[in-house]
């Protein structure tokens, strides 16, 4: 065998790590994850005081192959990529997978649709969703004439 793993590589499992982190992040973010197709993407959701943040690992995905939609409090992310094999080459190792998935994430709070910003850097999609300010109930003092 021309290429082989060493001990470091055997000690860690890629998909296990993905699932573990996904579960943890969703639990921390308090987000309900709607049914989804299998994919390799790693998604992190965080909540700060003024925003929700979503980060998705989309290595090798072109910007035009990402679709993002916000409908009320549901954010839907779709992405796909192909994995190419160079022509005339033998395969020695093949772990990278093509994927095509759609994920719908229900946000725990209202989002200001005008305050959504997405950036794509180093194969990571970052989405910032500004929260819609909560209208606080006001106590009104009413003077009653006697």
């Amino acid at each position: 065998m021309l290429f082989r793993f060493d001990e470091i590589d055997r000690a860690f499992g890629w998909m296990n790590a993905v699932h573990h982190q996904l579960d943890r992040m969703l639990a921390q973010g308090g987000l309900a994850d709607l049914p989804r197709a299998d994919h390799q993407g790693r998604v992190t959701v965080e909540e700060t005081e003024g925003d929700f943040w979503l980060r998705a690992d989309l290595p090798g995905v072109r910007a035009e192959d990402v679709d993002l939609q916000l409908d009320g409090d549901v954010l839907t992310l779709s992405a796909r990529r192909a994995v190419e094999q160079p022509e005339g080459h033998r395969v020695h190792m093949q772990e990278r997978r093509p994927f095509e998935f759609t994920r719908a994430l229900k946000l725990p709070g209202a989002v200001d649709a005008d305050a959504v910003k997405a950036t794509f850097d180093a194969g990571v999609l970052t989405i910032r969703l500004g929260k819609r300010p909560v209208v606080q109930p006001r106590a009104i003092t009413v003077n009653v004439a006697r």
Partner: peptide, 10 residues
């Protein structure tokens, strides 16, 4: 963590 890798040869 390890990353997924493809290796091709000719």
């Amino acid at each position: 963590e390890q990353m997924p890798v493809d290796v091709f040869g000719n």
